[in-house]
């Protein structure tokens, strides 16, 4: 067992950890911080993303024993004093469905905006490339992140646009309303992937 001292969400901990024990095991199993999720165990899905000294890292790959002096922030640490603007934006933009990828996604977004407050849409996509989501298709999450960034990289999606009503118009011989379909605007500058 190895003694290691580090902080989690501002609280100091000194623990004796196993040599192969992972940060995710410490968070979920010992500290009761279950917001960080395990989706694959091999650092591919990003559901376990936390901040270690401000960097987004997969907690399933971080040996707890390596954390001496480190400062770890999990999703629970974002909402100690009301919601983080990113969290509010995820709610406002309907960026959540089953929610399992959400904590990791929010943490990756937090790390991105802390380092790069005005990312382009491509930079946002690159930052969350290591966060897999099977439900949402990522669009509304990207809109949420862009709205906090305030870059206007993505126009806010008009939720009500694109609804076409049929019957009354058809019967009256009036063609469908020609509102344009609501589409994701092309990225500015057409950045390479």
């Amino acid at each position: 067992m190895i003694e290691v001292s580090f902080s989690v969400n501002g609280a100091a901990h000194t623990l004796r950890v196993g040599p192969g024990e992972r940060l995710i095991d410490v968070l979920r199993g010992r500290l009761g911080l279950t917001g960080t999720k395990e989706g694959c165990g091999i650092g591919v899905c990003g559901a376990c993303t936390v901040l270690v000294d401000g960097r987004a890292e997969n907690a399933c790959l971080v040996p707890a024993a390596s954390l001496e002096g480190a400062s770890v922030v999990t999703v629970e640490g974002l909402s100690t004093d009301g919601l983080d603007p990113l969290q509010q934006a995820f709610l406002d933009h309907h960026a959540i469905q089953c929610g399992f990828c959400t904590p990791g996604l929010v943490m990756s977004a937090r790390a991105l905006l802390d380092e790069n407050p005005e990312p382009t849409e491509e930079e946002i996509r690159t930052a969350i490339r290591g966060n897999l989501c099977r439900c949402t298709g990522y669009e509304q999450a990207i809109a949420a992140i862009a709205s906090v960034a305030g870059t206007g990289a993505r126009a806010l999606l008009d939720e009500q646009a694109g609804l076409i009503r049929s019957s009354a118009r058809l019967e009256a011989g009036v063609p469908f309303a020609r509102t344009p379909p609501t589409s994701t605007p092309a990225p500015e500058g057409g950045d390479a992937r």
């Binding site: 694959c40 591919v44 969350i128 490339r129 990522y138 379909p181 589409s183």
Partner: peptide
């Protein structure tokens, strides 16, 4: 595992037009 069984990432998403 998800290293071998690949699902779409945020960089795979196309431009999407939805009409309801």
């Amino acid at each position: 595992n998800l290293d071998a069984y690949l699902i779409a990432t945020a960089k795979d998403a196309p431009l999407v037009n939805i009409r309801l």
